[in-house]
Amino acid sequence: MNSFQMLKYGVVRMHDLVQDVLHWERFYLCGRLQKPVHILVDNLDIGDVNSVNLRAAVSAALLLLPSKFTEVDLYSKICSLSYMGDLRMLFAEDKNKVKRIVEGQFGLFQSMYKPFLKEYEAKELLTFSLPNSHQATISQDRSLSMTHSLVHSLPPLVRRKMGMKLGEMQVLKDSGRVLHEVVIGSREEAARSMQKIIRRTVMVSSARQAVSGFLAAGGINATRYLANKVRKAWKSWK
Rank of each mutant, 00 (worst) to 15 (best):
A222D: 01
L65E: 01
K77Y: 10
S143Y: 04
W24H: 06
Q19A: 08
E103P: 00
K196G: 04
F69P: 09
S3D: 14
L81M: 06
Q105S: 15
M169H: 06
K165W: 05
S80N: 12
A136V: 00
R159I: 10
E121G: 03
K35G: 09
D73F: 05
V230Q: 08
L125V: 07
K8Y: 15
A92G: 05
P66N: 07
K118C: 14
L150S: 03
S133D: 15
A57V: 14
S139C: 09
T147E: 07
R177K: 12
V151I: 14
M84S: 09
N228W: 09
S82C: 12
G10K: 03
E71M: 12
A136Q: 06
L125I: 13
K196I: 05
M14V: 14
V171M: 08
G31E: 10
P155G: 08
F214R: 06
E124H: 14
F91R: 06
F4R: 04
K165E: 05
M169V: 07
P155V: 01
G104V: 09
V49T: 10
S80V: 00
G47Y: 01
H148S: 01
S143N: 04
E181V: 11
S205I: 04
D174F: 08
S80I: 01
M194F: 09
E188V: 04
S76R: 13
H134N: 07
A216G: 09
L63V: 00
R55Q: 00
P155H: 02
Y9Q: 13
V49R: 07
N132G: 08
T201S: 14
R142W: 01
Y9K: 14
I101S: 11
R100A: 09
K68E: 14
K161R: 13
L166D: 01
M112V: 06
L157A: 14
Q5F: 08
E181M: 02
L62N: 04
P156Y: 03
S80T: 10
R159A: 05
H180G: 09
G85A: 01
K95D: 06
C79Q: 06
A233E: 10
Q195I: 05
E189K: 10
L144D: 05
V98S: 05
V151N: 05
Q5V: 08
K77L: 12
V49P: 04
L215A: 14
L150I: 06
L126H: 07
E119R: 11
T201P: 10
L154V: 13
F106W: 03
L154M: 12
E103F: 00
V158T: 07
V230C: 12
L64R: 07
S76Q: 13
S129G: 03
K95E: 10
K114W: 15
V182H: 00
L63R: 02
A136G: 02
P156K: 04
M203S: 15
M1T: 11
L29H: 03
K118R: 15
I101Q: 11
V11D: 08
T137F: 02
R177W: 04
